[in-house]
Design a protein around this nucleic acid. Structure first.
Lengths: 115, 115
DNA sequence: CTTATATTTCTATAATTCTGGAAATAAGGA
DNA sequence: TCCTTATTTCCAGAATTATAGAAATATAAG
């Protein structure tokens, strides 16, 4: 009976709940909107290309990254909207009207608003 | 080569990357600091007590919930600090100096600051 | 058209996680 | 003490996910 939103959230959380994939995702987040070629990612993180490909497929399936071909390379980039959606989902139910309850979460959110 | 922080993040993400556990966690987040007895959770979410117990153990292992005994019942509650820590970790690497990149994420954070 | 580079797909094995039944533990009440 | 309620632990089978080698596909360059 889980909502479609919850199912999507679990997909994204599952995709990130893996040391290799979390590293890839964070690298792409840091790399910015231009993204990185799969080969560059494999070299930087020292992973086998087929393993990386499988991990990128999972991240893409969860909508956390997108790709485009550039010559022989395939460039991957983080999807910031999707990441924001996931954070929003996790944050969403935390307040429930009582500001005092989720003070630490609000503080974190405020810190993030720096950029 | 993953940092201890990353390992802890993966633990929390893994714990939440499960439909049943995500439901439990969100229910506890909504329930507030008083928490809920395991039996109440089982009844509200209609899950077997042993399955719930296993799920609560995983969430507790990830530090996302804590428990205390009250008579025959065991009361579980969400750990807001830990949740904030996880959000912080996910948000942390998103900016990297360029405000324009993570605009959607910053917008989400601002929305969360409502409470 | 042949070769080199970049990445993915296929496939099988290994490892992990999920689920639910049954028994065990813990606490309170008769 | 005995019984009931509340929750956990133990366990085994089922299901899912991870890993890496080998082959396949796609593109570019000579």
């Amino acid at each position: 009976m889980a909502s479609a939103k919850a199912v999507r959230a679990v997909e994204a959380l599952s995709a990130l709940a893996h040391e290799g994939r979390l590293s890839v995702f964070r690298l792409l987040v840091r790399a910015g909107p231009e993204g990185l070629a799969a080969g560059d990612i494999a070299r930087k993180l020292d992973v086998l290309p087929n393993t990386l490909s499988a991990n990128l497929t999972v991240l893409a399936g969860a909508g956390l990254v997108s790709s485009r071909r550039d010559g022989r390379s395939i460039i991957y980039k983080a999807d910031y909207e999707r990441m924001a959606g996931l954070l929003n989902f996790l944050i969403e139910d935390c307040c429930n009207g009582d500001a005092s309850i989720c003070a630490p979460v609000a503080a974190t959110a405020a810190r993030a608003a720096c950029c």
